[in-house]
Write a protein that binds this DNA or RNA. Structure first.
Length: 891
RNA sequence: GCGCGAGUGGUGGAAUGGCAGACACGCCAGACUUAGGAUCUGGUCCCGAAAGGGGUGGAGGUUCAAGUCCUCUCUCGCGCACCA
C-alpha cells in the first residue's frame, strides 16, 4: 500500500527531538529547570522551584514490563498508549506530569535461558531491555527517560534489600494496628531472641510450601493456580522446607479496609477481598470422649452447634494418629496414604465425590454433651481454619453429601423461610431443636451462642482469613540476594542475622552454572567463597521473588537517582500528593494502568509493603495507587487469545513498519473501551491510518508533497530534514473563523475533553474524525482553528501533530501548548430540531427557536400536519414537553 | 456452586430514561484514473414499491417514554472454588 504520509520520517524525527530536548523531563522540587525548557516557559519558572512554585503534580504510571526475549506484544501498547495520551493531556492542562518507565528484569526466563546456554542472565536481560527500549521508544511515548529504572541494577536493588531489612527489623503491634521497630517489642527475659524472631514481619518458617520440581523453586500461594505453577503450568507439590516468609496476614484487615478509600474497579476490589477471604465466626472446643486434648474447630455457623452430628479432621491434622482407635488404625493409615498420593489437582478436581474414614474416636458436643464420631476426610483442608470442622449435615452442602454417603445422622436446627426445604438449607432462618436458641433468627442465635461459649470457656469469636503469609524466598540465581547471614552457634546450629545497611547492596556472586546444586540447594550455594564468610557464618543462598522489585518501584520513580535514600522525602511528598504545598493533589499515584493478571499478586504485595513503609514513617500516603484501571485483553483477529500455537499473534513492529506508530496508537485506542476485551483487526488499523492521511492532506500542499515524494524516490533519501520541503496548504490562512467553523471546533473540544476526563478514548477519536470530515470541506481553514485541532490531536498522534504544528508555526513543540478552552456560547444554535411523538412513537420533527417555552413547543407540535394525521382526531389525554428534548402527545 | 462483567447491524462499537445504530471496518454504486489494493462522492439495521411496520439475547413489569430502571430467565467471558 502506498504511504498515506511520510510517517517513516516524521516519527524518528520527533522522537529524536523529544529525546535531545528532554521535552518530557519531569521536574522535581529543587531541580535546576533550564529557562529554555518548554515547561519552564509555560509556567514561568527557571532554576530550582519549590513545591509551592511548581504546578500541581500528576503521577501517571504503567505497570512496568518484564523484558522478555519475545519483545513487545500488542497488549503492551494498549495500556501504555492510554497513559501516554493522558500524560500529554495533563501536560497541556498545566500539570507537572510524572510519567516514567522501567524494567522489572529479575525473573525466571532469563535464568532458564542461562541454564540452557550458559549465557549469564545479566547479558540476556540487557539484550532484552535494549529490544524493549527500542520498541517502546518507537511508539513515541512521553516518558521521562532520565528516571528509567532496572530492578536488577545494584543501585536499585540496594533499596529493595533495604526495605527487606525494614521488614525484618519490624513487628506488627496489634495494639496500635501498625508496624513498629523490633526494638520496641516488649520481650520476655527468657528466649528474647526467639520471641523477637517469632514476631518479625520477615521470618523463617519450616512449614510445608509449594515446590515446583520443573522450575526448581518454591512458589507463593498466589503463584499456584489449580495445582500448577502460574509460570509454565508445571505440577507443584507440598514439601516442608526452610523458607523466608513475610507476615502479610498481619495486614489482612488493613488491606481490606484500605480498599474502601481507593478508586479501583469493583471487580478488582472484589478479587482482593476474595483472596484475603475474611470470614467471621467462632472457634469451638470439642473435648474427646476418651479425654486428652480437645479438638478446636472453626465455624461461621455457631448457631448450628446443636446440629453437629459428627466431626471431621483434615487427614494431615496433628491429632489424627493420637485419637485413632486400634481397630481403625489400618483404615486410617490407608486413607492418609491415598490422600498423599493424590496430587493437589486430583484432590480439588474430585471435589464431587466425598471420601473419608472413621477414626474410631468420639468427641463430645459441648452444647448437649452428645457423643459424636470423629472422621477424617480430605474435603477438610489442613491449611484453613483449624484443620478440623464440626459437621452440620442439616445445613451444609458438603457435610450433607458426606453424611448421606456414610449414613450419618442429619438434624434440622434451622427452620428455612416459608416455602423452602429446611434440610440442607444454608441461609439465614430461625433456630429450632436448639434448646435456648430456639426461635431466634440466625444472626441473633450466632451472637447468643458465641457469648454462651465464651462464658463457659468453650470457645470464642474469631475472624479467619484465607490469606496466608507470603512465601518470600526462591531457589534461584537471578534475584535479589537476602541481606542476611547465618551465624554459627556453639551447638552447631546457625542463626540468621541482618546485614547492616552499610553492607548494601549485596550483589550476587558471578556464576557460570545456574542450576541448583546436586543436593537441591539454590544455585548461589555453588559460590562457596561468597557463601562462606571468614568468621564461619554463611550467607543466605535463597533469593527474593520477582515481586520484590515491583513492590516499590513507583516510589523510586519519584527520585530515581537518589543514592542516599530509597527516595527523597520532599520528592515523595510532592509526587504522592501529600506535600503541605497541597494543590489539592490526590494522595498516591493519580492513575495506574495495567493488566488484571496482577490483581492478587503485585497489587496486593505492593499495598502491603507500602503499608509497612507508611507505618514506619518512610512514605506519606496509606495507599500507593489512588486510581487503578485494568486495560482489557486484546484478542487475535480470530477472537481467540493470542498465542504462538494459534498463530494469531500480532507483532507491533510489523504494524509500525507498515502504518506507523501514530496509527498503531490511534487504533489501539479506537478499538473500543479501554477496559473491554476486544479482538484485533488489521482492517481497523488501515481505517485510522487513512484518517491520519486525511489529517495530513488537510494541512499540506499537494503539489509540494508530490515533488517531495518524487525526490524521495529518485534519491532514495531517508533524511527527515527533507520534510521541510513539504509546504503548508494554501487553504490554511490567518483568516477569522466563521461561526460554523468555530462550532465544529468547539464541539470537538468539548467532546474530546470530556471523553479524556472519562478515559473514553474511542469516542474522543471519533470526535476528532468528525472534525476532520467537516474541515476537509472548508475552502479556507483558519490557522487558529487548525492549531487548536492539532493540540486536541497531539495526545493521540503526537508525531503527526508535532510535524504539522511545526509547519503551522507557533513554537518548537506542542507538548506544553495550553489545552483549548471550550466556549459553550459558540455552540448555541438559534433553532433546534425537536422530535414529536404520538403515544411514544416518533411522528415528526419540528424546527423551533432554541429558547422556546413549553407552551410554544406544545403549540408547534400540535400544529404539525403529520402529528394531526396520527392523532386521528382523538382527544388529547396529556402532552409531555421536555424543553430542548422532545414533545410526546398522549391520546 | 459462588462472585463480577457483558449480550445492540455482516464486524468493532455509539447512545445524562427522551430521534437506536455516532465514528469506523466491510460491502454496493459512482467519479478521477493506463491501472486501483490510492483518493473523492453517495448508499448501506430488517420487511415493504411506497405509506408504513418491526427491531437492542428471551419473558414479564415500572413509565407519557426503556438498549438504559426493576423481577425472572438464557448465553458468553473473567475470577474464586470442598475456605467450614
Amino acid at each position: 500500500m502506498r504511504r498515506q504520509y511520510p510517517f517513516h520520517l516524521i516519527e524518528p524525527k520527533w522522537q529524536r527531538f523529544w529525546e535531545t530536548q528532554a521535552t518530557f523531563r519531569a521536574w522535581n522540587p529543587g531541580d535546576d529547570i533550564p529557562a529554555n525548557h518548554p515547561f519552564a516557559q509555560r509556567h514561568g519558572l527557571r532554576g530550582p522551584a519549590t513545591p509551592e512554585q511548581l504546578p500541581p503534580k500528576f503521577y501517571i504510571l504503567d505497570m512496568f514490563p518484564y523484558p522478555s526475549g519475545a519483545g513487545l506484544h500488542v497488549g503492551h501498547p494498549e495500556g501504555y498508549t492510554a497513559t501516554d495520551i493522558l500524560a500529554r493531556y495533563q501536560r497541556a492542562r498545566g500539570r507537572n506530569v510524572l510519567h516514567p518507565m522501567g524494567w522489572d528484569a529479575f525473573g525466571l526466563p532469563a535464568e532458564q535461558y542461562a541454564i540452557r546456554t550458559g549465557q549469564h542472565p545479566r547479558k540476556t536481560t540487557e539484550a532484552n531491555i535494549a529490544v524493549f527500549q527500542r520498541q517502546i521508544k518507537a511508539l513515541g511515548f512521553s516518558y521521562d527517560w532520565s528516571r528509567e529504572i532496572d530492578t536488577t541494577d545494584p543501585h536499585y536493588f540496594k533499596w529493595t534489600q533495604w526495605i527487606f531489612l525494614k521488614l525484618y527489623n519490624s513487628w506488627f503491634n496489634p495494639a496500635t494496628g501498625k508496624a513498629e521497630p523490633i526494638e520496641n517489642l516488649p520481650c520476655p527475659a527468657e528466649n528474647a531472641d526467639a520471641f523477637r524472631d517469632s514476631k518479625r514481619l520477615a521470618y523463617v518458617s519450616h512449614a510445608p510450601v509449594w515446590w515446583c520440581e520443573e522450575l526448581g523453586t518454591v512458589l507463593a500461594n498466589e503463584e499456584v493456580i489449580d495445582g500448577k505453577s502460574e509460570v509454565g503450568g508445571f505440577p507443584v507439590t507440598r514439601r516442608p522446607m526452610r523458607q523466608w516468609m513475610l507476615r502479610i496476614t498481619a495486614y489482612a484487615e488493613r488491606l481490606l479496609a484500605g480498599l474502601e478509600k481507593i478508586d479501583w474497579s469493583e471487580s478488582l476490589k472484589e478479587m482482593q477481598r476474595n483472596w484475603i477471604g475474611r470470614s467471621e465466626g467462632a472457634e469451638v472446643q470439642f473435648p474427646l470422649a476418651a479425654g486428652g486434648p480437645a479438638i478446636t474447630v472453626f465455624t461461621t455457623r455457631p448457631d448450628t452447634l446443636y446440629g453437629a452430628t459428627y466431626m471431621v479432621l483434615a487427614p494431615e491434622h496433628p491429632l489424627v494418629d493420637a485419637i485413632t482407635s486400634e481397630s481403625q488404625r489400618a483404615a486410617v493409615a490407608a486413607y492418609k496414604n491415598e490422600v498423599t498420593r493424590k496430587s493437589d489437582m486430583e484432590r480439588t478436581d474430585l471435589a464431587h465425590d466425598k471420601t473419608g474414614v472413621f477414626t474410631g474416636a468420639f468427641a463430645i458436643n459441648p452444647v448437649n454433651n452428645e457423643k459424636i464420631p470423629v472422621w477424617i476426610a480430605d474435603y477438610v483442608l489442613a491449611s484453613y481454619g483449624t484443620g478440623a470442622i464440626m459437621a452440620v449435615p442439616g445445613h451444609d452442602t458438603r457435610d450433607l453429601e458426606f453424611a448421606r454417603k456414610f449414613d450419618l445422622p442429619v438434624r434440622v436446627v434451622v427452620q428455612a423461610p416459608k416455602g423452602e426445604e429446611s434440610t440442607g438449607f444454608i441461609g439465614d432462618g430461625t433456630s429450632v431443636n436448639s434448646d435456648f436458641l430456639n426461635n431466634l433468627p440466625t444472626p441473633e442465635a450466632k451472637k447468643k451462642i458465641t457469648t454462651w461459649l465464651e462464658e463457659k470457656g468453650l470457645g470464642r469469636k474469631t475472624v479467619n482469613y484465607k490469606l496466608r503469609d507470603w512465601l518470600f524466598s526462591r531457589q534461584r540465581y537471578w534475584g535479589e540476594p537476602f541481606p542476611i547471614v547465618w551465624k554459627p552457634s556453639p551447638d552447631g546450629s546457625f542463626h540468621h542475622q541482618a546485614l547492616p545497611e552499610s553492607a548494601l547492596p549485596l550483589v550476587p556472586p558471578d556464576l557460570s552454572d545456574f542450576k541448583p546444586t546436586s543436593t537441591g540447594e539454590p544455585p548461589l550455594a555453588r559460590a562457596k567463597q561468597w557463601v562462606e564468610l571468614p568468621d564461619g557464618s554463611k550467607r543466605e543462598t535463597n533469593t527474593m521473588p520477582q515481586w520484590a522489585g515491583s513492590c516499590w518501584y513507583y516510589l523510586r520513580f519519584t527520585d530515581a537517582r537518589n543514592d542516599s535514600k530509597f527516595c527523597g522525602t520532599e520528592a515523595e511528598q510532592y509526587w504522592m500528593g501529600t506535600h503541605p504545598a497541597g494543590h489539592g493533589a490526590r494522595p498516591g499515584v493519580d492513575l495506574y494502568i495495567g493488566g488484571v493478571e496482577h490483581a492478587v499478586l503485585h497489587l496486593l504485595y505492593s499495598r502491603f509493603w507500602h503499608s509497612v513503609l507508611f507505618d514506619l514513617g518512610y512514605v506519606s500516603t496509606p495507599e500507593p495507587f489512588f486510581k487503578l484501571v485494568n486495560q482489557g485483553l486484546i484478542l487475535g483477529e480470530d477472537g481467540q487469545k493470542m498465542s504462538k500455537t494459534r498463530g494469531n499473534v500480532v507483532n507491533p513492529d510489523d504494524i509500525m513498519r507498515e502504518f506507523g506508530a501514530d496509527a498503531l496508537r490511534l487504533f489501539e485506542m479506537f478499538m473500543g473501551p479501554l477496559e473491554m476485551v476486544k479482538p484485533w483487526s488489521t482492517k481497523g488499523v488501515e481505517g485510522v491510518y487513512r484518517f491520519l492521511g486525511r489529517v495530513w492532506r488537510l494541512f499540506v500542499d499537494e503539489q509540494s508533497e508530490t515533488e517531495f515524494e518524487q525526490m524521495q524516490t529518485a534519491q532514495g533519501a531517508q533524511n527527515p530534514d527533507t520534510l521541510a520541503a513539504i509546504k503548508l496548504s494554501a487553504s490554511i490562512a490567518d483568516a477569522p473563523a466563521t461561526a460554523a467553523q468555530l462550532k465544529t471546533l468547539h464541539a470537538c473540544i468539548k467532546k474530546v475533553t470530556e471523553d479524556l476526563d472519562g478515559f473514553r478514548f474511542n469516542t474522543a477519536i471519533s470526535a476528532l474524525m468528525i472534525f476532520v470530515n467537516d474541515a476537509i470541506t472548508w475552502e479556507t481553514k483558519p490557522a487558529a482553528v487548525m492549531r487548536d485541532f492539532l493540540i486536541l490531536l497531539h495526545p493521540f498522534a503526537p508525531h503527526l501533530a508535532e510535524e504539522l504544528g511545526g509547519k503551522l508555526g507557533g513554537g518548537p513543540t506542542l507538548a506544553y501548548a495550553p489545552w483549548p478552552k471550550f466556549d459553550p456560547t459558540l455552540l448555541a444554535e438559534d433553532t433546534i430540531e425537536i422530535p414529536v411523538q404520538v403515544n411514544g412513537k416518533l411522528r415528526d420533527k419540528i424546527i423551533v427557536a432554541t429558547g422556546s417555552t413549553e407552551a410554544e413547543l406544545k403549540a408547534a407540535a400540535l400544529a404539525s400536519e403529520k402529528v394531526q394525521q396520527f392523532m386521528e382526531g382523538k382527544p388529547i389525554k396529556k402532552v409531555i414537553v421536555v424543553p430542548k428534548r422532545l414533545v410526546n402527545i398522549v391520546i
